[in-house]
């Protein structure tokens, strides 16, 4: 019945059609998320302006606490932590966006292939996705890194295998729904190819929800990179990554706590930024997802 208006479904403010960005900013959580992300992006962009080198050693400046020259202090090798944090933002952003993009491509391709493929192939793929999901995230990451050796690419591979299955399932469900729709049958009989159907019907339908999911997954990616680097199994020193700053700093946590503080805060900022943005995106653009 149309008259049963759910009180919560009816926002108290009058919604006028507005730009997407304006709607996001109107949500306090979205505004906060965007601000935190902007902070990270700004840091990455301005890293080059720092007078210090992110990797250059300066033995005379070792273990300096925060000063006017070294805003966040220096580490055990005398490197300026603020500069390393800024360059670390480049690593974190490039990696999380790059790896997420690869995971998306992997998910879309396998999902669409499963949806269009024969039933047995679909079943096998589902089972494999299940198996990937059944290995606890941390163990999956550790075992892959063990066999590939610690590197940036190992981290990317972990991200694809951890986050990819969810995108694949989403793409598969949508493809199956589309595949059996009457209008697709009609288009097929008119000679439309698989690629055309995918680009014209499947992608537009899932791109929104899948991108929101991906935005919410970015903190996971940041966590995977920083976590593996913290264990010394991710980004290799001396490259500046927030995880390696924590790795270096953890040995000196008793006397030089500023090192772990410098390494952890940007992880918190970025993780919260993308999470808040994802929440706001979902609430604003995908009420169906929000209900879950």
């Amino acid at each position: 019945m149309t008259l049963h208006t759910d009180p919560a479904a009816a926002p108290s403010r009058r919604t006028k059609p507005r730009g997407a960005l304006a709607r996001l900013v109107a949500d306090p959580l979205g505004a906060l998320g965007l601000t935190l992300i902007a902070l990270t992006v700004l840091g990455a962009a301005l890293a080059g302006l720092s007078p210090h080198s992110p990797t250059g050693l300066s033995p005379l400046d070792r273990f300096s606490g925060p000063t006017a020259e070294f805003w966040l202090g220096t580490d055990n090798l005398g490197r300026d932590l603020f500069t390393r944090v800024l360059y670390g933002a480049r690593v974190a952003l490039a990696l999380s966006i790059g790896a997420t993009a690869l995971a998306l491509v992997f998910g879309l391709v396998t999902g669409v292939a499963a949806g269009f493929g024969p039933r047995w192939a679909d079943n096998i793929l589902l089972l494999i996705l299940d198996a990937m999901k059944s290995v606890p995230t941390v163990m999956l990451a550790l075992v892959l890194v063990t066999f590939t050796g610690p590197s940036l690419w190992a981290v990317v591979l972990v991200v694809v295998l951890v986050n990819g299955p969810a995108y694949a399932r989403m793409a598969r469900t949508q493809t199956l729904a589309i595949r059996n729709a009457d209008y697709i049958e009609a288009e097929r009989s008119l000679g439309a190819g698989g690629a055309r159907i995918v680009f014209a019907h499947v992608l537009p339908n899932i791109l929104g929800p899948i991108l929101i999911l991906a935005a919410m997954d970015i903190p996971i990616v940041v966590g995977i990179e920083a976590g593996l680097s913290f264990l010394g199994l991710g980004v290799r020193p001396p490259a500046p990554s927030w995880g390696t700053i924590l790795y270096d700093g953890f040995s000196y946590i008793r006397d030089s706590a500023w090192m772990v503080i410098a390494g952890g805060i940007p992880i918190v900022i970025t993780a919260l930024g993308f999470t808040f943005l994802g929440e706001a995106l979902r609430d604003t653009f995908d009420p169906k997802l929000a209900k879950r």
């Binding site: 008259l3 208006t5 009816a10 926002p11 403010r13 009058r14």
Partner: peptide, 11 residues
Amino acid sequence: SYATPTGTLRA
């Protein structure tokens, strides 16, 4: 009546 986003619906 119901309060709705577009106005008061007099059911």
